[in-house]
Nucleic acid binder design. Structure first.
Lengths: 195, 195
DNA sequence: GTCTATACGCGGATAGAC
DNA sequence: GTCTATCCGCGTATAGAC
């Protein structure tokens, strides 16, 4: 055959990476198969030897992106709560993340489109997020803090990106970092208010 | 003339309401002018006597939606912080809001598309959000709590809608309510933990 | 202001050659 | 597996009648 046996696997990975970046940047509905394949360096006809439909691509993209994101959470080495939170804030709640959705978390970029997707996509997303919740609950104490942390991070990034000026974007993500500190590290290592 | 003088104003309001619901439900990129006008009870040709382009419609929709949302915030009558927060949670962080994006806040539904829009849309959005921040800061104490509250609400709803099962959706918004209570009402009116 | 009709491009998807 | 070529539908937007 003209193509090496691992070529298909390699190309599929490549397609997922390119599709992830393109769709996070422009929105899944706004990217076409043609433009996507062109960005990947091949022609549109080759698409359907990897995915049976555009919707299947969406599911594959979201799954790969969520796995990547969770791996980053797992990679946080800190045991101390304040240090852990500081590490995550420096990774997620940054101006670089605000400016570059194509290289960032899938949820602020495509969350609304996931919400509108079919049950298969949402099922997969839910399983991944429940994994993330379990992992976070061990670090943060309980499920409330786990979900609250995720929602705060995702919402803050979404909000910051909808702002026009960098100053306001910066204000939003800075506020979110402080808000998380107040909410999460307060119980364990803050002295009670004197009043 | 065949149309009453206030007909245009009335129709434009009607169009904005229909467009708001349709786009929050399906995404702005996914709704066409034709389907939109059909849902509004007229034909597509009439669209351009109200808006010069689809993009102008987007700006008008986002502006109207944000104004509505801020009016709801202003309408919260409670002075007591805990009561104020309870009122907002019962209004925003509900299963009904999760299930019906077409009748809900524009940010979880169209936030990512606002982020990808031109500077005019984001400028307008920023002005509205700065107003909301100012108003919330008076109630919640400072800008940190204001932005944190908004991000938490928006992120929680986005996250819940991306989940497949109602139980998980409920878990997310319940966690968010508790998380906000911890973060916001803790300083003022909670008794310190006994431990 | 709204209608019908239409121009024109790009969307997803398929067929058959190599 | 990838390429070229193509079908078909829907997208935005416009022109002209009423």
């Amino acid at each position: 055959m003209r193509y090496s046996p691992e070529h298909k696997t390699t190309m599929k990975k490549h397609l997922l990476a390119v599709a992830g970046a393109e769709t996070k940047k422009k929105g899944f509905a706004a990217v076409g198969v043609d433009g996507l394949m062109h960005a990947a360096g091949v022609t549109s006809g080759a698409f359907y030897s990897h995915f049976s439909s555009k919707n299947e691509l969406f599911k594959a993209v979201v799954e790969a992106e969520l796995q990547d994101s969770i791996q980053m959470l797992v990679g946080n080495p800190h045991q101390d709560l304040a240090a852990w939170l500081h590490h995550e804030s420096n990774r997620y709640l940054t101006m670089s993340h605000v400016r570059h959705p194509e290289a960032g978390c899938v949820l602020p970029a495509l969350g609304a489109e996931i919400a509108r997707a079919d049950a298969g996509v949402k099922d997969m997303c839910e399983q991944q997020m429940l994994d993330a919740r379990n992992m976070l609950a061990k670090r943060l104490g309980d499920d409330t803090a786990a979900w609250g942390f995720i929602a705060q991070c995702v919402g803050s990034l979404l909000l910051a990106r909808a702002m026009a000026n960098e100053e306001t974007q910066q204000e939003v993500i800075q506020a979110s970092r402080q808000f998380l500190q107040r909410a999460i590290t307060k119980d364990s290592d803050r002295t009670p208010p004197e009043k």
